[in-house]
Design a protein around this nucleic acid. Sequence first.
RNA 1: UGUCCUAUGGUGUAAUGGUAACACUGCAGAUUUUGAUUCUGCCUUUCUAGGUUCGAAUCCUAGUAGGACAACCA
Length: 553
Amino acid sequence: MADEKSLHFLEEIVERDLKEGKYTGIATRFPPEPNGYLHLGHAKSICLNFGLALKYGGFTNLRFDDTNPTTEETEYVESIKEDVRWLGYNWANEFYASDYFEQLYTFALRLIDKGLAYVDDSSSEDMATQKGTPTKPGVANQYRSRSIEENRQLFTDMRAGKYKDGEKVLRAKIDMAHVNMLMRDPVIYRIKHAHHHRTGDAWCIYPMYDFAHGQSDSIEKITHSICTLEFVPHRELYDWCIQKLEIYPSHQYEFARLNVTYTVMSKRKLLTLVNEKYVNGWDDPRMPTLSGMRRRGYTPESIREFCDKIGVAKRENLIDIGLLEFCVREHLNKIALRRMVVFNPIKVVLTNYPEGQEEILTSENNPEDPSTGVREMPFGKELFIEADDFMEVPAKKYFRLAPGQMARLKSAFIIKCDTFVKDANGSITELHCTYVPESRSGSDTSGLSVKGVIHWVSARHAVPVEVRQYDRLFRVEDPALIGELADALHPDSIKVTTAMAEPALQSATKADRFQFMRTGYFCLDADASEKKLIFNRTVTLKDMWAKETAKGK
RNA sequence: UGUCCUAUGGUGUAAUGGUAACACUGCAGAUUUUGAUUCUGCCUUUCUAGGUUCGAAUCCUAGUAGGACAACCA
């Protein structure tokens, strides 16, 4: 019996519309501009739009808002499609605003014929001046009173390529003194002699967002057009166009965009990170892009769960990145295969283990999911363990190895540290331990009980692998508050080291998710090859001991 | 010195005029062959001032705070 989850405000609107019989089914759309890669903020929008249609019976179109040929590229179209699919959603139709250019042009003519649009020859500077400010009304210029015939001719000539970029624009004729700046005769068409990624050189005039988006919604009979809060002032213009054009009345609703601590979500800033080479491309595992997160090892399930948990509302928010990490740990804990990898090895010699002997031990692949079975681990006289798992002088509450102390090697034997060897620098290089033969996991008759359990690999069988340990990209909670993006960067957002892995990892595939026991969740990186295994750390395991030791400092 | 949007624990989100709750975080404990997971408990909340009402987080008014709006970007 699942408890009723309360509805967010958009679900309430949809339910009310459905109940009142306004619609029999809903239609939404996800409308990215193909000028960058999708990020976590887009995921929120995708989950919302597709989720609503899925929940209430309807469909979602993927519509590329490609009205600005100078910034848009096919490369982005492909990545966007891949990311939406990866997140787990299927669009009903793949559309482009550019599919509607001819229709939109007709709409513009309709406005002209109604005396609701005019061609303006002003420079953009002059237009800005004439527009006034939020507190000062704008003023009309001489072009505003051009005749319908003249406007028609001029606009037709604009399309025919008779003018250069910036020479003329088409403006809606609304109200230069309107309290909403966007209603002060907004530009709806501009001249751009530029190659468009889909329409090629067919057009030299392109509609502005406000004369393309709502109309596209209307053409597709979108019932609920959902966007972020910064478009609230556009709604008035959105409705004006639909009303004057007398076309299908789609409605716009706005929600608060996603912000996450220690990251940035603006396309401009992400582009800067890529262009200035602060990261290695859009899919750098430190990026909050979906391609970056995918490469890092995030699962679509965990991202969807995150989007569900953060909710949908209208107030500005800054979500703790810890919630994202919680979501991915929660999922990975259920599906990741357990493996042992020693990051900072010291050698352990089992002095009472017969010389030359080896045996095969087994260990669960995933205790959360017994159906995943076990894998085999070779065991021998010489092992590697984590340097951190030994303390010459144990701290209080430390219950791993120390001189005279015992610990269990996970899935193997209990060992006791007898002596240790130091090198010339005073750092510990080797531990000499004795193992308890009758303490073998699964058939332990030793009667001993030890609290410390540590991971290990057989020295002779250990496989060196590269591990890329990522940390947050920014050192401050809200990088937007720092003027220069570079100043907000975390200096150690990536640490590359070589670690010693158990042999089972040699058969890792790119689809596998691993938990390196007691360390974190990892996956094979795209750069990995048969010869060289490279693992990305998706997220660390929660570490209460680290917290405990930090307290003392 | 305009218009619009928003205001609930540290962070998010509920409560739809009738006992302020859920998740994350934090803290404490139990279990544990991962100091993980799991489980238990605890801390902490309605921006301010008026008003309406038997009763207000919820409705009204004013204030305060934050955000948006002056691209031929979306």
